[in-house]
Design a protein around this nucleic acid. Structure first.
Lengths: 215, 215
DNA sequence: ATTCAACTCCGTATTACTGCGTATTTTTCC
DNA sequence: GGAAAAATACGCAGTAATACGGAGTTGAAT
């Protein structure tokens, strides 16, 4: 990297304390300059237009506009800006979506600040950076199970699962979907078989975890 | 506060990056010294025994041992240590529980680092500190509903609910808690009565919604 | 036209859970 | 120390869900 012009970083996280902290740590590095901060995606884009940062270090979960949407906007409006995602969640689904939307790297919040700095340098140079946990996830997802070990539910099964997770009993579900209770039972059985989950509560948990239902 | 002996702070958060950041920021204050860090509650207690910090700055959600349990342990084993909770969630239930367990303050992660420093100073002096959002919550909780329309589960019921939401069946729960299946059934019954929820899936949903279980 | 997966429905036997009741022992609190 | 709340335990009739099994229909693949 160029020692004479520091890497200009825009910090985006909805927690000022976390921003302040990371900012404070990054300022210790002479070749990195935190040129601004933002508390959500919309702010981030506005500030980026003013500040022309090299790298945007962005959290995913934020109010107003989250990291996913913001990444899309960045790639549309300011494609020259490198987007480095900083997330708490080692979540394949997120990672895949984000990379698809043009993010240049993904770093878990449980890395050291040294590794974060390496990541910033890497994406600034044009590389793509994944922290250890994240790349592991991706690898598993793409290569580990070609057929997809993730049991995939059919559309109908997913619908039924959603209703179960909403707290409806089989009778209610049958009425909702205009099918017989027996059919609902069969779906339920098949779902449990596929997911290897054997209680209704477990199914609800699964559904929420996989974002089939909102809370 | 005494300018000659800095406030000794132990930083507890499961994200090294967040720890590093906050640590870096706190070190800028001459009257505060970060004497150590820990990644979960158990580590925190071990380190506290070695380091004798004045203030423990602790996250709630952590692996191995979370902030709630850790706070209880601190108050039992090291009552002279002041515990300042640092949380992302402006959640009445958490706050009430924590204060009951002896925490000395509660700061949301969306405060500025300046306010965090004030909070550390306050609890070190023996005061109790709430960040703006948190105290607002408490106020609402105590005054808004005198009778308390929110159905409150007992500790045991909460435990049972947690296990249900984790997908265990009554038999498993009974074994886990060393009580009879009938008793679990009774708890389940009482929980459903209090919450007016009538399916296991609904209970799981409730538990997740109210952060009794992690996903 | 055949094949396949998804969706639908059912029988039977078993197990799990519900709803309602009661009762004893701890804990907690004043 | 005594009242109140919580936790524990049990009975029992009834309902819901599970775990097996089998089977007919439909629509898309092509």
């Amino acid at each position: 990297m160029n020692e004479h012009t520091p890497i200009r970083v825009l910090l985006v996280d909805d927690h000022p304390l976390v921003r302040d902290g990371i900012s404070s740590r990054l300022q210790e590095e002479p070749h990195i300059e935190v040129v601004g901060q933002a508390g959500n995606g919309r702010e981030a884009i506005a500030r980026a237009h003013e500040l022309c940062p090299d790298v945007v270090l962005m959290d995913i979960t934020m109010p107003v506009m989250d990291g996913l949407e913001a990444t899309r906007r960045f790639k549309a409006e300011l494609p020259e800006v490198r987007v480095l995602i900083l997330s708490m969640h080692d979540d394949q689904e997120y990672i895949v979506k984000l990379m698809h939307d043009g993010a240049n790297g993904y770093v878990l919040k449980d890395v050291s600040s040294d590794e974060l700095i390496k990541a910033i340098e890497a994406v600034h140079q044009g590389s793509t950076y994944f922290s250890a946990g994240a790349s592991q996830s991706l690898f598993n997802n793409f290569h580990g199970r070609p057929g997809g070990h993730e049991p995939v539910l059919t559309r109908r099964e997913e619908t039924v699962l959603r209703l179960i997770a909403e707290g409806q009993c089989n009778k209610d579900i049958a009425r909702s979907l205009n099918i017989s209770v027996r059919t609902v039972e069969t779906h339920r059985q098949n779902i449990k078989g596929k997911l290897d989950i054997h209680t209704a509560a477990g199914l609800a948990r699964y559904a929420i975890e996989h974002k089939l239902v909102a809370l």
